[in-house]
Every structure is written in C-alpha cells, then in structure tokens.
C-alpha cells in the first residue's frame, strides 16, 4: 500500500506566510494585505504525493508557488534537503532550481507558442547544463519525449499543433528535463477532458515510480487526489484545516470543513447520490483581506461554538500523523 510509504522528509514548510499588500488612493498607500497563505506548516516525504486540496481562492496555488520561491514569502521557511529556499540568495537559488520544478494548469498559457517542442523542452538544459553539446541535448529531448509518450518525430512542431493532453505532456517533459526530485503540480489536469485526465494521471504515477519523484499535487478534484495522493492537506482561506493520510482523511474526516467538502462532491452513481446526506455550507468564503477573528471557518461552520468566533484553533496532532486545526475535532 502506498499509504505506508514513509520516506525521509524532503521538503519542510514551516510557518509559511505569503501576504500581498493592497494599495489604494492616488498616493498608493498600503491599506491592508491579502493573507493568501497564513502560517502554513507541513512536511513532504521523499517519494510521496502530498495532495493539497481546497476551493478557488483558498491559497493552494500561492502556497505551491511560494514553496518554489516563485514568490518571495513574507515569512517562514521552506527547507529542501537542509537548505532554506525562502532565504537563499539568487545565485544559490538558481542552483537549487534544478531540484524543484513545476507543472502548470494551463498548458496553452505556459508553453511559448513561438517555440518548437524541442526548444521548449531543451530550454532548462540550455540554462542549467551549460556543458551539454547540441547533440547530447537533442538526445536528452528525445529521451524525455519517449518518457512522456510523445512521438519523437513531432519535436519540430509548435504547441498549437497538439491537443490539450499532449500539450500537458510537453509541460511534463520540460519539468523533467533537469531530473528534479520535487515537482509541484498545480492543477495539471483541471483543463483536460475527463477521458484525457486518466492518461495524464497514469503518466504522472508511472514517472514517479520510475524516477522516484516527490509530488505536491495541488487540485480541487477530491476524487482524483484520493486516487493519487499518499497524504492530503485541506486548505481553507489561507490555512491548512486538516492533514492526514489519504485513506483516513476520506473515510473518517475530522474537520467540519473537510466533512462538508467531501459531502459536496457529486458521485457518479445515482443510487449513492440519493442516499447521501449532504452538508450544504451556507454563504461564501470570506475575503482573505479581511478574515474573521477566531477560526477562519467559523462564519460557515455548521457546528461553530462561541469559542470559535474568538480564538483561533491550534494546529494539533490528534492521532499519529493526523493534524487538525479545530477546537472540537477529536
């Protein structure tokens, strides 16, 4: 079972905060800040897939980007293999970039339309493997195209000549070019059709096994995360509400938000659907520029108590490996 995979920690995120300032008026004075990621801590073990789920605007993508330092985090540290990425200077950071890569949601937007596939995939090699000859590079591109299931003869084509699923494969090949150890997958299948999603997910799993990759898999698709992830973290309004091994999170969610989120996912089975007891959350997610006092979820929580509106709950381990941020979860 993949649930039992317990590698050593590869990435440690500690108290990560990513605030974006809000400027207003003609003097562009700062009037507040959007707390996109607000004090998030977790560990990604070597060889595992950590699923990061949540609704749009909860900060999951920002979190992924801040971890790779595509943003400069406001506070906190991200330790990859003993080195704190969050405070590294640019030269050292550049060296580290080969170990960590990203696969983006929209392959249309993340591939340069004016470059051939060969050029797109060799871009990281040109940048980071200066000693490589042109011949070696082209061999490596061929290898990568094989690995992701693209026909080598298409190397001179442009992104628009490919379908969505194939374009995502190009993005994956580019991310693999430098043999990274850690890949942040930011909604890699969200833009694809159902029948193509399974192809890409299977590919990601195969590559993980072959190359020993570690994934942070960001998605809003809870069923797909259940299939892929070893452990799952649930985010809401910039904070992680619950983190648990995948099997336990889905069979026995502890946080009221996780319960509501899981109950909202429609199941492709009419008998199951008519039996289900749905928790319908009232209202919308509050603005991250103005989160409620106390627990972030208190405004929509069906079981909120007076305490929840006053005191923000601690991030606590209620069972070995199970973390919850709720006063009343047990």
């Amino acid at each position: 079972m993949r649930d039992d995979v317990e590698g050593k920690p590869l990435v440690e995120v500690r108290n990560l905060k990513m605030y974006f300032p809000i400027y207003k008026g003609i003097l562009r004075r700062q009037v507040g800040q959007v707390k996109a990621v607000d004090d998030v801590s977790f560990t990604v073990h070597e060889g595992e897939t950590l699923g990061l789920v949540g609704e749009s605007g909860c900060g999951k993508s920002t979190c992924g980007r801040a971890i790779l330092r595509l943003y400069d985090p406001t506070d906190g540290s991200v330790i990859l293999d003993g080195t704190d990425i969050a405070s590294l200077n640019t030269d050292d950071l550049r060296q580290m970039r080969t170990d960590m890569q990203m696969i983006f949601q929209d392959p249309q937007a993340s591939l340069n339309p004016k470059m051939t596939v060969e050029r797109i995939i060799s871009e990281p090699l040109i940048e980071h493997r200066k000693g490589m000859s042109a011949k070696e590079r082209s061999d490596r591109v061929g290898e990568l195209m094989d690995a992701v299931g693209l026909n080598r003869t298409f190397a001179n084509r442009y992104p628009h000549e490919f379908s969505g699923g194939q374009r995502q494969r190009i993005g994956i090949a580019r991310a693999l070019a430098l043999s990274p150890r850690f890949i942040v997958c930011d909604e890699p299948i969200a833009a694809l059709d159902v029948s193509i999603q399974a192809q890409v997910v299977n590919l990601l799993e195969d590559l993980q096994q072959k190359m020993g990759l570690t994934y942070l898999f960001i998605s809003h698709d809870l069923s797909m995360v259940r299939h892929l992830a070893t452990r799952v973290a649930v985010m809401y309004l910039g904070q992680i509400m619950e983190l648990a091994p995948s099997g336990q999170l889905y069979s026995d969610p502890k946080h009221p938000y996780t319960k509501a989120l899981l109950s909202a996912v429609p199941e492709p089975d009419p008998r199951e659907e008519s039996r289900r007891d749905r928790i319908i959350l009232q209202g919308d997610v509050p603005s991250p520029a103005n989160p409620p006092t106390g627990c972030n979820f208190c405004t929509r929580c069906p079981v909120a108590q007076p305490l929840c509106h006053q005191v923000s709950p601690d991030w606590r381990e209620i069972e070995p490996g199970r973390f919850v941020s709720c006063h009343f979860a047990e």
Partner: peptide, 9 residues
C-alpha cells in the same frame, strides 16, 4: 467550487 456547486444543485 464544489461547495457552491452543491448549493446550486
């Protein structure tokens, strides 16, 4: 989002 989708359904 799924929780909003559930409301609409």
């Amino acid at each position: 989002d799924v929780t909003i989708q559930a409301q609409i359904l």
